[in-house]
Simulated scan of single mutants.
Amino acid sequence: MMLTIKAIDSAKPKDKAYKLPDFESLYLYITPSGTKSWRYDYQFNGKRKTLTIGKYPYISLSDARNEKELAKQLLAHGKDPSFERKKSALLANVERDNTFKSIASEWHSSKKSTWSKKYANEIISIFERDIFPYIGNEPITKIKPLEMLTVLKAIESRGALEIAKKARMRCGEVFRYAIITGRAEVNPTAELSSAMAKTQSKNFPFLATDAEMSEFLNALKGYSGNILTRYATMLLIYTVPRTIELLTLKWSDINFEQKLATIDEEVVKKDRVHLIPLATQSIEILKFLQPITGHGEYVFPNRNHPSKPMSNGAILHVIRRLGFANRASGHGFRHQFSSILNEHGFNSDWIEKQLNHEEGSVRGIYNHAQYLEGRREMMQWYADYIDNLTD
């Protein structure tokens, strides 16, 4: 005879624990202290086992019967209901502990030793102000692209486009960190850049998409003007120095064996030289130019005054002749470089070092050696990335 709610409520504790059977090995277990809990007995691999479903009245009679049916389905598929319940509980605990906030905080702790205190505080402030209040307590595996986009759009809505962009890139790093450490499988920020407002400098226009950059590179490939300015523009894209740093580059600054270019302190206007790792593509350009200008001092000499460097306006002239005036600029290539590498998860300190942004300090000088090998790898990756955009 199946149990009724009346029979359950009227059941009293006894000196010893006893069972009130329901149906198909489901029963209510009543202890001497009066605790009532649902249990289900079953056979698995020839052994008798018991699944504890939960306490009554928190688990009602109908809920207990539903849980029993679910257990029967698991058994029909060769699965142990007790083991599956424990596994689900464990995964729930892991999911509860692996919130976006907890993993972001862990990621930030792992990164801040490589950042300045000011920059580390800036990043965590963005998370605490704009991200954590909305998705901080959510399991990182549950966050979807639309939800992430909504959070970022809220930042954009107050006109903080640069902060929104930085938040997207840093959140992307958190998701990639979670993937690497086995606590997530998907990065929901990966495809969001095209859905966000573009931040474009009025003074330094840049090519905001791969399609635009591909268009420019193919136009540059077919450029019929001065060959030196064409290769100067290409080398500027591969190496991303400031335009004046490239055009005042001397042959004595090039170390082909070490694949390095050294920008002098006087040029960078800082208290140390700036080292630029040269990708294979950059070395090939320089070796091509060596028979042409290698007899002089400058890699890119002025056409009318060979003892002087090429004019700063030479590359801008190429950009204009290609039809990209107000769409691209020498400085814009640096902006694009930063955006692409940050989006692909490269070390932000390597990127800043390559752009020569950090202050001239003991830490900055030390980091030249610390980051050089990482920057070599990064610059080769970037040169290959640029080549893949060319038909």
Score class of each variant (00 low, 15 high):
161 L>N: 09
203 N>E: 04
189 T>V: 15
175 F>W: 07
168 R>Q: 07
183 R>K: 06
153 K>C: 07
170 R>W: 05
175 F>C: 09
187 N>T: 06
170 R>A: 06
167 A>Y: 01
166 K>N: 09
200 Q>I: 15
186 V>N: 08
171 C>R: 10
170 R>K: 08
181 T>A: 14
173 E>T: 02
168 R>F: 01
202 K>H: 02
188 P>V: 01
195 A>T: 00
160 A>V: 02
186 V>Q: 13
156 E>R: 12
198 K>P: 11
199 T>D: 12
172 G>Y: 00
196 M>H: 03
154 A>W: 03
202 K>S: 09
175 F>H: 10
173 E>A: 14
203 N>A: 12
177 Y>M: 08
189 T>C: 08
179 I>V: 12
194 S>G: 13
164 A>H: 03
160 A>R: 14
151 V>M: 01
206 F>W: 15
194 S>L: 09
206 F>M: 13
192 L>Y: 07
162 E>Y: 05
184 A>L: 05
183 R>T: 02
160 A>K: 13
206 F>N: 08
183 R>G: 06
155 I>H: 00
179 I>N: 03
202 K>N: 11
155 I>N: 00
177 Y>H: 03
185 E>V: 14
154 A>S: 08
174 V>F: 11
198 K>R: 15
171 C>F: 05
158 R>M: 01
159 G>F: 07
162 E>K: 08
185 E>M: 10
151 V>A: 04
167 A>P: 02
187 N>H: 11
164 A>W: 00
206 F>K: 02
181 T>D: 06
153 K>L: 15
166 K>E: 03
192 L>M: 03
198 K>E: 11
162 E>T: 03
158 R>Q: 05
196 M>K: 01
177 Y>Q: 06
203 N>H: 10
205 P>C: 12
153 K>T: 11
153 K>G: 02
193 S>E: 07
191 E>T: 13
154 A>H: 13
155 I>L: 08
180 I>Q: 14
180 I>L: 01
195 A>G: 02
202 K>F: 10
168 R>T: 01
192 L>T: 09
203 N>G: 05
184 A>H: 01
203 N>C: 08
200 Q>C: 05
